[in-house]
Amino acid sequence: MIPSTLEYTKARSIDEALAAVAAGARPLAGGMSLLPMMRLRLASPGAVVDLGGVPELVGVCEDGDELAVGAMTTHRAIANDPLIARHCHVVAQAAAGVGSMTIRNRGTIGGSLAHADPHGDLPAAILAAGGAVIVRGPGGERRVDVGDLITSYLTTTIADDELITQVRLPKDAAQSAYAKFHRRAIDWSIIGVGVSIGADGVRAAATGVGERPMRLTGFESVLDGGGSLEAAIARAAEGLSPTADLDGSTEYKQHLVGVLAARAYAEASSR
């Protein structure tokens, strides 16, 4: 289908973009989620503001003990970025596996977080890494941990007049990995698990397990307490009740959480 009628503006700066969203425009990042939704008429924004012309939203640089990643940096750029590969492997690996090359060439890290698909790979990978976002609005900037960003299906704590401008990734997540299960290369993950082994212990997070990405607290606590990987796997899906659907039953998906957590942990440990 053809999207419904809309007004289009292309922002040249963050301030221009903020003015447009404050006036009611929907931010258009890479468009890899929003445009298909508009084609299916699941979304019909009256106006969009294209963020594709704002250079300050693109790129990766070091900032103290974190990496500052522009919200409009594409999956492909993230997958190929040497800083992210070195300091936050789980995010590079998750980005490399998103959709197809055509989607990775357009889709962005900020768009993936703002869209908050319950099967998205980037939110779970960034949650496992312990990342955060910088959100800018009329009242200035605020920092939100990714664990506090997504509240439900396609729903975040970002207000309509705010934008994610930056993603902050910790530099101590080098020993990390992402493992996922899906049926065809371009499909959404049925389940995906990111694991990061840092100075403060193990962090693990899964996608596809409910309305938002979730930490695997049982898995983490067993490993942090010196328990075996087998014992950790047994508790990986503790507290999680993934929805049964055509991809599998709740029990099957709970099983996948354990299998993928073990795979990601093994790969992270070997790095």
Binding site: G31, L35, P36, R39, T102, R106
Partner: peptide, 15 residues
């Protein structure tokens, strides 16, 4: 120079 999906890109984005 990059491969993209023309069905998921607005013509105005290509100006």
């Amino acid at each position: 120079g990059d491969t993209i999906l023309a069905c998921s890109t607005l013509a105005v984005q290509c100006d």
